[in-house]
């Protein structure tokens, strides 16, 4: 069992991780319209099966309902959101302002990202902001929380109390800086990490070895990202078209060799096998299940992976789920 740590915020995610449980997070993409009921429906599917839900911020640069409003809606529906914020669309004034807005609703988790380039989305001729980058956003939120100061140096009347996270992609290039880059994010203030979806287990294990060699797994909580394939086409698409995702050919073959009507089930099986292998890796503190437009499968994955029921923080003395130790 992992050693217990002391939580610094009232984030449910941080408490679960600090207790030594394997955390389960998922994500919810806001709709391309103003119908908040869509979020409530997606939230209801996930509720009880995950600890917190990431709310994506105009992912792939497609304009959507904003992550802040969506986070508030999900919180009002009884889920705990992780507010994703990208530095593509807002300058430092807007970022700080939105963080305070989120904090005013006691949103206790934030994931600091750079964001996909706008050329992938529906506003290809738009300007991008990039006043600061994701590392600097981490530093900024840490300063706002820990020192109670705006980046301009003035005091914040009620500082945000957020558990601060970042993304890590163990599969992007250049590989040799993937561990140093994580170290840099931790130094900038990342208290938890959600990784890119993992398909290439060998490469992920090599990365985790490097992470452990530097003791970084003890300085942050690493949640391993998984995404089930719905079809063989999706596996091929992710292999060839999505930058920074590494899908080994044998997985694509395994999906392609499966009859069409059984591909979804095979995708779930691969995902469950991945989770089982990840559970054995020291330093993996939980799972970030990104079932893209397939949120309804998350409860099944969580149950079949032996991650259900989720810890009840109100009940004292509960035994945390088994985690790998060396």
């Amino acid at each position: 069992m992992r050693e217990k740590r002391t939580p610094r915020t009232s984030s449910r995610l941080e408490k679960i991780l600090a207790e030594g449980h394997l955390a389960v997070t998922s994500e919810c993409g806001p709709p391309r319209g103003s119908d908040g009921a869509v979020l409530e429906k997606k939230g209801a599917m996930l509720k009880g099966y995950i600890d917190v839900v990431n709310v994506t911020d105009n992912q792939t640069s497609m304009t959507r309902l904003c992550s802040l409003a969506a986070s508030i809606r999900l919180k009002q529906a009884g889920l705990e959101p992780v507010l994703q914020m990208v530095t593509r669309d807002r300058n430092r004034i807007a970022l700080q302002s939105d963080i305070l807005g989120a904090a005013s609703f006691d949103i206790n988790n934030i994931l600091c990202l750079t964001g996909d380039h706008q050329s992938f989305g529906d506003c290809k001729t738009g300007q991008n902001v990039h006043d600061i980058d994701s590392m600097q956003l981490l530093q900024m939120v840490r300063q706002m929380r820990d020192e109670g100061l705006f980046i301009g140096g003035d005091a914040i009347s009620r500082p945000p109390e957020m558990f601060i996270g970042a993304a890590a992609n163990p599969f992007a290039d250049p590989f040799e800086i993937r561990v140093p880059r994580l170290a840099k994010k931790i130094a900038a203030g990342a208290e938890f990490i959600q990784t890119q979806c993992i398909y290439n287990m060998e490469k992920f294990e090599a990365w985790m070895q490097g992470v452990r060699d530097r003791g970084l797994h003890e300085e942050t909580y690493i949640l391993a990202g998984v995404t089930p394939f719905k079809t063989a086409g999706m596996a091929k698409y992710m292999r060839s078209r999505v930058p920074g995702i590494d899908v080994p050919d044998e997985l694509v073959k395994r999906m392609s060799d499966t009859p069409k009507e059984k591909q979804a089930e095979e995708g779930i099986t691969i995902c469950l096998e991945t989770i089982e292998r990840l559970k054995e890796i020291e330093g993996v503190c939980g799972f970030h299940i990104m079932a893209i437009e397939w949120e309804e499968k998350v409860p099944e994955i969580v149950q079949r992976a032996g991650l259900y029921p989720r810890p009840d923080l109100e009940a004292p003395g509960q035994e945390p789920a088994k985690v790998a130790t060396s």
Partner: peptide, 18 residues
């Protein structure tokens, strides 16, 4: 493309921009 001062971003593949 994102004038990232602490890069690279996750979109760097084979030395090329996303």
């Amino acid at each position: 493309a994102k004038r990232v001062l602490n890069g690279p971003c996750g979109g760097s593949v084979d030395g090329r921009c996303e």
